[in-house]
Design a binder for these strands. Sequence first.
DNA 1: GTCTATAAGGAGATAGAC
DNA 2: GTCTATCTCCTTATAGAC
Lengths: 199, 199
Amino acid sequence: MARTQGSHSQTTGPRIRTAAETLFARHGYAAVSMRQIAGAVGLQAGALYNYTPDKQSLLVDLMQRHMEALMTAWGQEGRGETAMSALEAFARFHIRFNLARRDAVFIAYNELRSLEPEGFARIESLRNAYEGELAGVLTAGRAAGLFQLDDPRVTTRAVIALLNGVLTWYRDDGQLSLADVEDLHWQMVRRLVGAEGER
Amino acid sequence: MARTQGSHSQTTGPRIRTAAETLFARHGYAAVSMRQIAGAVGLQAGALYNYTPDKQSLLVDLMQRHMEALMTAWGQEGRGETAMSALEAFARFHIRFNLARRDAVFIAYNELRSLEPEGFARIESLRNAYEGELAGVLTAGRAAGLFQLDDPRVTTRAVIALLNGVLTWYRDDGQLSLADVEDLHWQMVRRLVGAEGER
DNA sequence: GTCTATAAGGAGATAGAC
DNA sequence: GTCTATCTCCTTATAGAC
């Protein structure tokens, strides 16, 4: 256990990102100073610039990592065979994945306005790709006669808004378990898209 | 038309609020300076303090006015006689009212974290009162056998999240009219709460 | 890689002239 | 009511010692 001081470059980077994520989510990007982030990690502000060229890059980095992790995880999710099972998989996946990373999700939705144009474009295209996954499921389900929905694009956004609602109130120590919340929301999504009888 | 310069106290206050609302919604409370707000109104920063004791009070004032206007407007809305018509009234009212005041809504949802404890408590109780209106409709509808919903509190939040989703993407110059959006969302809400046959 | 020190500028808020 | 000027403090980011 030598070397408890000095270089920690393998762990300092992640620790900075974690601290920044927590602080940005709680207080907002603009309200958090580099000194605060450094303090949370036990550094002086200047040392942060060994890990990020500037504050804005730190934000973009957090958002991009989150969106890419989301896409990757969804890519590895078993989809089932019908649009119905794919929709259930999406609903449950979205709740589970996002509840486990609430700070990142919160930032991804609330700090888009803090991004400069290049970063904004990058993050938005990742989000559109993710929404496109759900849109594909809904369109296929409608074509197969499984869903009765009026407008696939509006419904896509409605489903995501509905599922994201969970993030604003769910508490790990509350009355409802994660499984309860998944079940309740899957039922609501199922009804919302007009998938009545089945399953 | 004398007096184009000098005292404008009857209009300056509202103009400051409007400018602050626009800027807070676009850039976030923490990212907007008093100088920016003053500039948008054509004042120097010091003059703002004739209208607000400090920046925080300006934010609280905006949020409180918005929530009170929301409650008042809903109070004047015709409710209909059944839980079904009350739910439809709520859905359409919520979309219409909030789309007309997107900046205020955006602030009300995203700047809660910027409030100091007293302001937070005041705004949150107003929000709870509003959510309670919808919860009452859902509970009554379930008791009357009109709705098949599993958990009234979860469903309340889900409906509000679903309706709020509109605010993130609707454009006045888009393909869908306000009436289209109201109709689509009312249909989705209707299905979501398990109100199948009727209407 | 991290520190201290510092540059250069912007923040919220106040005082006092007009 | 608004202005100018200013106080005090904090901001991002950099330079150079260790």
